[in-house]
Design a protein around this nucleic acid. Structure first.
Lengths: 119, 119
DNA sequence: CTGAATCCAGATGGATACTG
DNA sequence: CAGTATCCATCTGGATTCAG
């Protein structure tokens, strides 16, 4: 609504852009939000469960994006001493702070879709 | 903080995921946030100006992403009757509703960077 | 069960040159 | 000035197979 009314492209502005980019980097990838949603939804979730929840994802991509989420400390990975091995994933506290943003993105997405396609 | 405590992967949940995806689709691309920030910052902005603001973007990509933003009705494109031609871009009302989200993403990005790199 | 490895097609994006 | 066109290297991601 209010424009920024700045006459130069401030450092401030660049920092802001960098921060947004940092956030986007952590969330980019075709499946990350869906994966987070799946885990969040159940609290804990196993590899094969997420594979089923997230429609269309391949084990290759699931593996890759889970790894990235773990590196970003958004989820934890726990190997259970079963035979054969099972692995549980869950959100970290930090990962849980994403829920606000995901909700907002979801809300905006609804408005946006109506705006664009009227569906 | 609160997990969803649901025992099945509801339609509700899938809708949510789809909405988030719709939002992400509108914002994806390496430069979109930066482009929006540049335009927002000045209210109106010309092609070559944005090209300067957004460090690293090529005219090819700028053109492409501006076009996508326009399709998503986030910005408007106005050709001015000058010689040679100049073009002004500005945020639509709908585009302005993104500012909340961008701010939140930025805030989360700051926390996230501290968390990950301690910078 | 949970991945890693390989192969491969298609998308992405930079550099450069060109047009109205 | 504001793009478009072309070439080309790299990245992405699906399908399939293999391994602990």
């Amino acid at each position: 609504m209010a424009t920024c009314k700045i006459t130069e492209f401030h450092q401030e502005q660049k920092k802001r852009m960098r921060s947004v980019q940092d956030a986007m980097d952590a969330l980019n990838g075709k499946w990350k939000i869906a994966i987070i949603s799946s885990i969040c939804c159940y609290g804990k979730r196993r590899f094969s469960d997420i594979l089923n929840d997230v429609e269309g994802v391949s084990n290759r991509m699931l593996s890759k994006e889970l790894k990235e989420l773990e590196i970003n400390e958004l989820i934890t990975r726990t190997v259970l001493p079963t035979q054969p091995v099972t692995v549980e994933y869950q959100l970290t506290e930090h990962g849980n702070t994403l829920q606000t943003i995901i909700t907002e993105l979801s809300d905006w997405g609804v408005v946006h879709r109506k705006k664009i396609a009227g569906r």
